[in-house]
């Protein structure tokens, strides 16, 4: 059966109706007429196919975006990329992701040079596990503790660490610590957790000597405490 309305509807009108972007009368007709519905559906499929063929056809390779973000792209190509980025929300979103990964703290890349000069004069201590529990205050704010505190000693400094499950994130753990007897320093003490040489987490010791590192995957880590007066390392800390 042929639709008596077919000649009245152009292709774009059928698609308008199929997508619900037209008046109710046309929409109802196209929905109820098998000829119009079939034609509209075919046109829609062709549009989807065109999208599949062309989707992000002029986007630069991801590595080009990464080079651009790192300032490694040639200046003329950078202008091409800037122009593309102005129009492409997909690439702009990817650039944000690239920026995030490049901004991750990374001991291999920062600092550029090995610690030398003045820093070599500083106290470098490797903390030893000396036991647990009795008479030692627990880190503040400790909740849902899984294991007894671990007590480390390095020179005059004691470190009391507790590891417990992260209640909000299944499978993750939280490390809390209290540092006592740390030598005076001009700067805040940075606490870094490293795994296989790469920094995974970082925080700053508060004025009471407490710190907390959250969202940690279970595994073997090294903990590094560092300020201008000393560097203390705990090797093989299992979290």
């Amino acid at each position: 059966m042929n639709c008596k309305h077919t000649s009245q509807f152009e292709d774009f009108e059928l698609l308008l109706a199929l997508n619900g972007d037209t008046d109710p009368i046309t929409r109802t007709h196209v929905a109820q007429c098998p000829v119009c519905t079939a034609r509209a559906t075919h046109l829609k499929a062709l549009e989807q196919r065109a999208t599949a063929l062309l989707f992000r056809a002029d986007c630069p390779p991801a590595l080009d975006l990464a080079e651009y973000q790192a300032g490694l792209a040639a200046s003329d190509y950078s202008r091409v990329l800037q122009s593309h980025l102005a129009n492409c929300s997909h690439c702009r979103a990817e650039l944000v992701q690239i920026e995030a990964i490049l901004a991750q703290p990374d001991p291999y890349l920062q600092p550029a040079e090995p610690l030398a000069g003045l820093k070599q004069q500083l106290a470098r201590l490797t903390a030893r596990l000396t036991g647990g529990g009795a008479g030692v205050p627990a880190p503040v704010g400790l909740r849902g503790q899984d294991d007894a505190p671990l007590i480390y000693n390095a020179g005059d400094t004691d470190l009391i660490l507790s590891i417990h499950s992260d209640a909000a994130h299944t499978g993750y753990r939280t490390l809390t610590g209290l540092v006592l007897g740390l030598p005076d320093s001009d700067t805040a003490t940075q606490i870094s957790l490293l795994q296989q040489g790469a920094e995974t987490s970082r925080t700053t010791l508060d004025s009471s000597g407490n710190f907390m590192l959250e969202h940690l995957l279970p595994g073997s880590y090294s903990l590094l405490l560092e300020n201008t007066a000393c560097t203390i390392t705990i090797l093989d800390l299992t979290i």
């Binding site: 390779p61 991801a62 590595l63 975006l65 990464a66 080079e67 973000q69 790192a70 490694l72 990817e94 992701q97 690239i98 990964i101 490049l102």
Partner: peptide, 8 residues
């Protein structure tokens, strides 16, 4: 950079 780009 290569690592970031393979995730992208």
């Amino acid at each position: 950079l290569c690592t970031a780009s393979v995730i992208i």
